[in-house]
């Protein structure tokens, strides 16, 4: 089966979040809990049903991912863009924080 993660948008500010292994919503996809087998997927599907009533998030959905170079890589472009930010503004979205971290690391 394809690896799956559970994603949503945070109610208060709309930003994309992913369900982590501890049951909290995380701001980067690499922090997501990955369902790698049927039992885990069932757990994630249950979490999806519960999250429909969670006032922290909206638009909860399961997405297919694979692992590439130690990172989670959504199979659909739409989900890759959600996970990174607009491809035309690398200074915005999640990718901006990564770039800022990289820049800080280089500067250090």
């Amino acid at each position: 089966m394809a690896l799956k993660v559970l994603t949503a948008n945070r109610l208060s500010d709309g930003i994309a979040v992913w369900l982590g292994a501890d049951g909290s919503w995380q701001e980067t996809i690499d922090e997501a809990f990955v369902a790698r087998h049927e039992a885990a997927l069932t757990g994630l599907q249950d979490a999806e049903k519960v999250a429909a009533f969670d006032i922290q998030v909206v638009d909860v959905t399961l997405v297919d991912v694979e692992e590439r170079d130690g990172h989670l890589y959504p199979l659909r472009l739409r989900e890759r863009i959600r996970a990174a930010g607009p491809t035309v503004r690398l200074d915005l979205g999640k990718q901006a924080e990564t770039l800022a971290d990289d820049a800080a690391a280089i500067a250090a």
Partner: peptide
């Protein structure tokens, strides 16, 4: 429907 009547959508990255 209430937020949409006030022009607020939810998109990929944010509202």
């Amino acid at each position: 429907p209430l937020r949409l009547m006030n022009g607020v959508y939810l998109q990929l990255h944010a509202y």
